[in-house]
Write a protein that binds this DNA or RNA. Sequence first.
DNA 1: CCTGGAGTTGTCCTA
DNA 2: TTAGGACAACTCCAG
Length: 483
Amino acid sequence: MPPITQSTPVIMWFRQDLRLADNPALNHAASLGKPVLPIFILDEVSPECRAMGAAQKWWLHHSLVSLSDDLKRLGVPLTLLRGAATDVIDALCQETGADSICWNRRYGAGEQAVDATIKSTFRGTAKSFGGHLLHEPSLVRTGTDMPYRVYTPFWKKFCAMGPPRQPVSAPKTLTPCVTLPTGDALDDWKLLPRKPDWSPSLAQAWTPGEAGAHQRRNAFLADNLRAYDTARDLPGPDRTSRLSPHLRFGEISPYQLWHDAFDTRHTAEGKAREIWAKELVWREFAYHLLQEYPHLDESNFNGKFDTFPWQSNPQALSAWQKGQTGYPIIDAGMRQLYQTGWMHNRVRMIVGSFLVKHLLIDWREGEKWFWDTLVDGDPASNPAQWQWVAGTGADAAPYFRIFNPIMQAQKFDTDGSYIHKYVPELKNLPAQHLPAPWEAPESVLRQAGVELGKTYPKPIVDHKQARARALEALNQSKDAIAP
DNA sequence: CCTGGAGTTGTCCTA
DNA sequence: TTAGGACAACTCCAG
């Protein structure tokens, strides 16, 4: 080891916090008056750490480009390293003499194990900070010091714990290291898809990076917060925040968004503000569940479902993934996902319910597909929402709650704008027939150039029959004894 | 320890 | 056309 001197650098380890503003670990690093060495590690080898899906990798690539540019503007370059994080950091300390490291906490079991190992073996000071969540998930406890399993009491307790701290601004300058360690070139990581390159449609929909996140935030606060409580449910106009991937990669701080929610410079009813704040806290609740139950993506939260007879049905699974089920609202959603790496939340519930209840396919198949295709694929929110839809989760939907894909389309895509956008083969079919094209008169179909079974699939299951079959199967298993 | 109100997002049938 | 109740009972959690 080189001798520890005044000029030894502090390592700022970026992970899921790819931003400069309101980044507590970065502010800490800046405050030490030492050279700052910002790094990002691509760790695909540490056990129990879930490898990113393809859409997330695309996002990560561009987010790292953006972070790297932003850091350069502060006078320090971002160093990219690859391998098991413990080994990488060991080697980095050997090379640079760094005796100090800091990061913002993460919450997957495998990731926490890695961080704990580094903290206990690091020769020097390793400091962690809270930046990803508004309250540490393990600190929200019931009156009897237990974790919560139901959202509303969690929300009440969350509010009773007092408001989250105010966001802090980015450091003005950082001191660079005199000599830099050797790092990787981002392109060598091959995070971008090729053969085929399906990313242009993602690039059209999104601007990864901190600047893009703030653009989205400003647009949301100016336009969509006002009527958020009602308008967020309609996938056609899509008045959601669309901030989920930016939050996933920490390009914007949840502290910033929490205080935005109650900022009176933006006009909105109290109801809209509260619903938006509650959405932020759903994310917290998902992490709370993940903390209590680290295998949230692998096993049923409710063990009664461990014996449930899920059906293996590769053809149906494939039709669902490709958006070829014959139910336009399902197909629109699945195609939006595949094309843009994102799906409106209302539609996520509808397609999730369809896979699990209508097709009786294991929710884990859906969770995996979402994980691979979503740019906002989140280790906590994704499995938590799938388990909720499937009825296997904490605070699960009751088993008899089966979304009707026809009725949902009528109710939430009344003008057909969502289906028209993502199912172009039905673009000439009048809105009233979009929820269930097989019920349209033959002449109307012909006039719209639709031939069911040729230009657009016939429904792969009958709603009424599938619903009855699901109720039967679920009814039988609800009395199963948890192991 | 007991009590009792409450629980994200729906559907379908009946009156 | 629309409003209301059944669907099931259970667990959670505060007081």
